[in-house]
Amino acid sequence: MEQMKLDLNNYRNLLKEYLLTKNETVLYQAEQLSKMSVQHSISPEEIINVHIEALKDLHPELPQEVTDSLDFLLEAMISYGLALQEFQFLRQKQFELESEISVAARMQETLLSTVHPSVKGLDIGAISVPANQMNGDYYHFVTDKDGSLGIALADVIGKGIPAALAMSMIKYSMDSFPDNQREPSLILENLNRVVERNVDPSMFITMFYGLYNPEDETFSFASAGHEPGFYYHASEDRFEEIHARGLVLGATHNATYQQCIQKINKGDCIILLTDGVTECRVGDRFVEREEVRQVIKDYIHLPAQNAVDKVYKYFERLQEFHLRDDFTLIIIKKEV
């Protein structure tokens, strides 16, 4: 690396002026010089060297001990110079990595993108925001000619790139299942086997799968250890937890999943989320599920997409705009 030379004349003049005037202006100029030196990778030992030279020019009569001691100081600074260079190199490298990751994140967005379907009689809202660049949450809608709607929601324990990679796998396995396979419990059983075979045992994926059937207006669902969602009974203005028993994906080979069914009435809502919502952290405190429910309740009368956006904004602000975990929230409202 070609380094800029520190201008000895300039330094000497500044130093001379300071010794004469003890002037704050000169110190300010020294600060500017210091900043510029760091920018140009000028090591501390070089500055000390220039200082020694300047001082010798200005005071040739300086005692030997003083100049010797400055040489000693110069030696003592060598490692700081090296650390500075390493820091600059690593910063450059970090910059490169970050731009690489942002390309990967855009790719992931395209790969995992899902169309928000319009299904007759349903109002659907969804939001998914990664804590870092890459999202370890994943949701997907599957529609069918008969008007049914499948909803998949998964969360990898852990976040960042490994989580995002695992999610791509989930998506492509689901794509490869035959269209007629729509039973939530069976879908989870199949995915469990895929995950168990292909993913590192230290990595767990929780998942919820639900299927809305317009014919009898029911919602059947199964869960692989996923954060329970809420069911909102409009007529009673009451929330109920959506529970179904089942182990996280990949934990054992032959896991089976309980499938439950719920009749949906007009105005009712299905609220699905990941633990990035329920485990919002404010300082040392985790937000209680009760609080989450209350916030959702405050916005549930809005159109679904509006509602999820508002809930997200609320928790984003609460966490001072710094998400600790990937955040996904889906609200499905029965309109008629």
Binding site: S79, G81, L82, A83, L84, Q85, E86, F87, F89, L90
Partner: peptide, 20 residues
Amino acid sequence: QDGYSTSGGLGAGLPGVKRL
């Protein structure tokens, strides 16, 4: 590689020699 040496990547070690 920078940051590898047992001294915890303070710029020294062999990458440091290369820089010096």
